[in-house]
């Protein structure tokens, strides 16, 4: 029945609040709670079991004195930069090619995107096989007569990370291509007509008009790629398992191994906190651009 009293604010929208409980619990317990828990425990001397015995920055000092961690960071850096640049370039160029009103566009798009449906484990194993020096590409080229040909990234510590990169690009560039294509399709046909009337060459139109207009798409792509890079784990486990030696270790694997193989929780917590820091360094400028910009726009 109609009520004339202002109802309790807590009870208003009660159903919505009950329905949102899983989200609220997830946010509070997992995303906030667990993150804080890990960060706090990274300052303790936990080993087999977590315990709250604080030792300041000792875990971090040990972390940055471990060659395996340093190699992990170096690999992440190389993999990250290369993967970012290559994904963006390949993704954009392919999208631009597909945008030329070509035949078989759907077929080609399907072919380029299908690896994205596959898991990193499957991707890693496929490329482990293709890059196998005794039976894969290297042996095929040698059998063709070029006997000194050497392409064995998975067995050469100096270039192993590039072997992983080839697989990573194969798996992920289709997604970037699709994003870029959607961005290109979103550009007004009149822009192209105007630049044709002005007699601007096509490549110049792309470089100086279209790409600047697609800034939001690029920002999204960059955030997507980088947040994926920090998480790289399955691909390494499947393709090289960190080898040869420790040449293709990455931070995510360092965390996992510290926690679940070496019973060295403190190191795992410290390393994962460093990963979080990496993400924050990427994310905060992005959030600032995205949301700070909107506020200025209004």
């Amino acid at each position: 029945m109609a009520q004339s009293m202002r109802p309790n604010t807590l009870l208003r929208n009660l159903n919505a609040k009950i329905a949102a409980m899983p989200m609220i619990i997830t946010v509070l317990v997992i995303f906030v709670g667990c993150t804080i828990w890990t960060v706090v425990h990274s300052f303790t001397k936990s080993r087999m079991l977590p315990k709250l015995e604080f030792i300041g920055f000792d875990q971090y000092e040990r972390l940055w004195g471990t060659s395996r961690w340093l190699i992990s960071i170096e690999n992440l850096f190389i993999y990250g930069i290369c993967s970012l640049v290559l994904s963006l370039v390949i993704g954009f160029v392919l999208a631009a090619l597909l945008d030329q009103k070509i035949r078989f566009e759907n077929t080609l798009r399907s072919i380029i995107l299908f690896p994205f449906a596959l898991s990193f484990v499957v991707t890693g194993l496929i490329w482990q096989w293709i890059l196998n020096p005794d039976l894969g590409i290297q042996s095929v080229v040698r059998d063709l007569g070029w006997t000194s040909f050497a392409f064995d990234p998975l067995y050469n510590p100096d270039i192993v990370i590039y072997g992983v990169l080839i697989a990573g690009i194969w798996q992920g560039s289709g997604l970037i291509m699709v994003l870029m294509l959607a961005g290109l399709r979103g550009i007004d046909e009149d822009i192209w007509n105007a630049s044709r009337i002005d007699g601007i060459p096509k490549w110049k139109t792309y470089l100086f008009i279209v790409i600047p207009m697609m800034k939001p798409v690029f920002v999204t792509a960059i955030v997507l790629i980088t947040s994926g890079i920090v998480k790289v784990y399955d691909l390494i486990v499947a393709q090289t398992n960190g080898g040869p030696g420790i040449a293709s270790e990455v931070p995510a694997k360092y965390v996992m191994d510290s926690m679940f193989l070496k019973q060295n929780l403190g190191q795992g917590f410290a390393a994962s906190t460093m990963m979080l820091l990496c993400v924050l360094i990427i994310l905060i400028p992005y959030a600032y651009l995205e949301f700070g910009g909107k506020r200025n726009g209004k």
């Binding site: 029945m1 109609a2 009520q3 004339s4 009293m5 202002r6 109802p7 208003r12």
Partner: peptide, 23 residues
């Protein structure tokens, strides 16, 4: 929309906090 202050009466009944369908 929930109002901040005041009253709404419809057909002589105070419906300020009634559900839309009950007004």
């Amino acid at each position: 929309l929930d109002i901040s202050e005041g009253e709404i009466h419809i057909n002589g009944e105070n419906v300020t906090w009634a559900e839309p369908s009950e007004r």
